[in-house]
């Protein structure tokens, strides 16, 4: 019980201290995860919408794959990215292993299927409603895709949040490809794992609480933006 109480004290102290090391860790966590989510959106939105919209051979298999990859184990993705980026790997020459870029790549791979799979479902539902009108207009495929993604934007923000939740919370992938190097690739989750293994349970838990607060802040700001926008566009 005292550990938990200490943890809250630690969390408060961490937040109040504005300790440079601590802020760097928080900053890197946000930078890596937000960038990964952005990349995943750029790929996942059009990919999911295209699967929803177009009939092609193997469409069922693609959907099954996207849905399955929503549950990709982070350590496995980390390992694969590690192999690809390691010195002897196909992209070893880039020298990206143990850099934030490697962490972004790994997290983008984890998040893209989540965003694509949820986008497929959301866009497919909207397409059912819009198809008569858009087909009557003889809209080109790209215009149709754009219309559906734009008009589904508020529902899609939930997909983005799901992706962000996945990225900010995972430890397996960033640990393997980032290496948890102090002042270089240490993020919140790897720091928590480290403190836990060192036996600093209160510090670890304190970091955990800060992580939760961060996730809450990001989610809340998306929800507020959403609520304002949704009222304007009356998506109900």
């Amino acid at each position: 019980m005292s550990t938990i109480l200490n943890a809250f004290a630690e969390a408060g102290a961490l937040l109040a201290s504005f300790d440079a090391d601590f802020l760097a860790i928080v900053g890197l966590s946000l930078r890596v995860s937000l960038t990964a989510v952005l990349i995943a959106c750029l790929i996942g939105f059009p990919l999911g919408a295209a699967v929803a919209l177009f009939r092609f051979p193997g469409r069922g298999a693609v959907t099954l794959m996207l849905n399955t990859f929503m549950g990709l184990p982070p350590v496995v993705v980390g390992l694969l990215v590690f192999l690809i980026l390691s010195r002897s790997g196909p992209l070893g020459v880039l020298g990206l292993l143990f850099t934030p870029t490697a962490m972004i790549i790994a997290q983008a791979i984890l998040v893209t299927p989540i965003i694509a799979a949820l986008t497929r479902q959301i866009v497919e539902d909207l397409w059912r409603e819009y198809s008569d009108h858009l087909r009557s207009l003889d809209a080109r495929p790209l215009d149709t895709l754009g219309t559906l993604i734009y008009d589904a934007r508020f529902s899609l923000s939930t997909a983005v949040l799901a992706g962000f939740g996945r990225a900010i919370a995972e430890v397996g992938a960033v640990m393997i490809v980032g290496g948890n190097i102090d002042h270089a690739t240490r993020v919140m989750t790897t720091a928590i794992a480290l403190e836990t293994s060192k036996g600093n349970l209160a510090t670890a838990l304190g970091l955990g609480i800060v992580l939760l607060v961060l996730a809450l802040a990001v989610t809340a700001s998306v929800q507020v933006i959403n609520a304002i926008g949704a009222r304007k566009a009356a998506i109900a």
């Binding site: 008569d132 009557s136 003889d138 008009d151």
Partner: peptide, 28 residues
Amino acid sequence: IRHQAMVFQRPVMLRRTAHANITHTLKI
């Protein structure tokens, strides 16, 4: 079909303003 238009029993309203519903069609 580009010389035709169709109005349905239950109109399909885009999640946009009335004005934007029309400019969307013009853009398409």
